[in-house]
Nucleic acid binder design. Structure first.
Length: 454
RNA sequence: GCCCCCUUCGUCUAGCCCGGUCAGGACACCUCGUUUUCACUGAGGUAACUGGGGUUCGAAUCCCCAAGGGGGCGCCA
């Protein structure tokens, strides 16, 4: 049994950012890798933006990505409450402690941490005003990812605002102490804040936890880190596009960490087994939706057929392409021939809808391709139709019909493929045509070819 | 302005700690193949050590500087 205790401490804002998801994931992976505890703590001190619906977004997203927690707002635990808004008395008591120790003082109605060092008054270019600087000793951080980092705070900072509410730095450290957090795994944007946190630990006389500052996720193009407004930045986008949560999670793992064995696509228990903080990268990574899409596609095709059906069925039902006549067996049959070709679930309804409905969409670009370079789709369909009309409806016979048509008209059998595919599906691509025709059945195939040339 | 972190193909990266590799892989892209003008698949290809100084017989690898990128500097979190 490991003594590792890590936490993810999101602020409920109504959205779940991909960067937050990755931070949560790394904490979760570390807890699961070490056999420690993963704790969820809600930083809802900002009453303006707090609501239950917002909390639900976070919990649902974490669950969707397959993460679970050992202590948290919904399940409790020995170190609760897990909402910061319910820990006000604790923060006040801890402030009193610092006041007693002479480490905090009041000024302008707020409570400040007193740094140790020589003081002088200087004009600050950034704040555009006179401030009191303190020549404090640098705080030394032995970061698990970055190594030794030294940084000195140069002025006192606020612990409690004049309105009586504690600030982030204070509650964050107090909670980490009280919840016995052993490892803080967070974004590099907090690296500069760490000296403040270490000062607070020092003021309390408490040994700080280990820190691991992980690289940030940058915009695909353009400057800066991913922000909520960037395409692909919110987890809900992937839920809406029917991405496989395991694929999203897999990709997120690759942003800032590389599996030791070099394999990029791997099951979560394998990732848990291999995950090490020392292997986390030091440099930021640019988000690449194409790569995530690729991982999603690979994962999708590798799914056991029954699982693929289970995932696809509700999506097709929701898109209303399945009517009551479609049996589970029939659905499984159709899905089995397209799974090896499928790229995403986002457009699955259009991809397989023609099997179940006669009013399928027709891809205009695909149709345009048929007549390019002197193509005569109507003639080809007319020619192949003759050979398909009276055959036994099995794969071998259908294939033989294409060969016969090719021989008769001195063409490659494949010359008939694209026109036939478009006639029966309205698409330019898809699963292997012979299999499609076989699954579609004789009646529908012939009827659609007839109507194409009519 | 001050402080901190980072720097290998277009992108994600391996290699760096313990100097000697044709600097490897993946995505994307290009070419060719496959009974589809393919949301499958196979083969091949283009493409990188930010720059400058050291140290060394030898540097992507060690040291310094510069440049570039990122982050922070609130009574936000």
């Amino acid at each position: 049994m490991s003594s590792v205790r890590v936490r993810f401490a999101p602020s409920p804002t109504g959205f779940f950012h991909i960067g937050s998801a990755r931070t949560a994931l790394f904490n979760w992976l570390y807890a699961r890798h070490t056999g420690g505890k993963f704790i969820l703590r809600i930083e809802d001190t900002d009453k303006e933006r707090n609501s239950e619906a917002y909390l639900k977004v976070i919990l649902d997203s974490l669950r969707w990505l397959g993460m679970d927690w050992d202590e948290g707002p919904d399940i409790g635990g020995n170190y609760g409450p897990y909402f910061q808004s319910q820990r006000t008395e604790l923060y006040k008591a801890k402030l009193q402690e610092l006041i007693q120790l002479g480490k905090a003082y009041e000024k302008d109605g707020a409570w400040w941490l007193r740094l140790e060092g020589k003081r002088s008054t200087v004009f600050d270019d950034h704040l555009k005003k006179e401030i009191e600087k303190v020549d404090a000793a640098p705080m030394v951080l032995d970061d698990l990812v970055r190594g030794r980092v030294e940084r000195a705070e140069d002025r006192d900072f606020v612990l409690f605002r004049s309105n009586g509410e504690p600030v982030f730095h204070f509650v964050n450290v107090v909670d980490d102490i009280e919840m016995k957090i052993t490892h803080v795994i967070r974004g590099e944007d907090h690296l500069s804040n760490t000296s403040k946190h270490l000062e607070i630990f020092k003021a309390f006389g408490v040994k700080p936890p280990e820190y691991a500052h992980i690289p940030l996720i940058l915009k695909t193009d353009g400057p800066g880190k991913m922000s909520k407004r960037d395409r692909g930045a919110l987890i809900e986008e992937y839920q809406n596009k029917n991405y496989l949560p395991s694929a999203v999670r897999n990709y997120l793992c690759l942003l800032g960490w590389t599996p030791a064995d070099g394999k990029e696509i791997l099951p979560i228990d394998e990732i848990i087994k291999q995950f090490e903080l020392k292997a986390i990268h030091q440099s930021n990574a640019r988000f690449d939706e194409k790569k995530m899409s690729h991982i999603n596609a690979q994962t999708l095709r590798a799914l056991p057929a029954s699982e693929f059906v289970a995932i696809a069925k509700p999506i097709l039902q929701h898109a209303q392409v399945l009517n009551d006549n479609v049996s589970d067996a029939r659905l499984a049959e159709v899905l089995s021939i397209i799974q090896e070709k499928v790229n995403s679930l986002e457009h699955l309804p259009e991809f397989v809808g023609f099997f179940f409905n006669n009013d399928f969409k027709k891809d205009e670009a695909a149709f345009a391709n048929l007549t390019k370079k002197g193509g005569e789709p109507t003639a080809r369909v007319r020619e192949i139709l003759v050979h398909l009309q009276s055959i036994e409806w099995n794969v071998a016979a259908i294939e033989a019909a294409f060969n016969a048509a090719g021989t008769e008209h001195n063409r490659k059998p494949t010359d008939f493929f694209a026109p036939v595919r478009f006639a029966v599906s309205g698409q330019g691509g898809g699963a292997h045509l012979i299999g499609v025709l076989h699954a579609l059945g004789r009646d529908l195939t012939l009827a659609r070819l007839q109507s194409f040339i009519a």
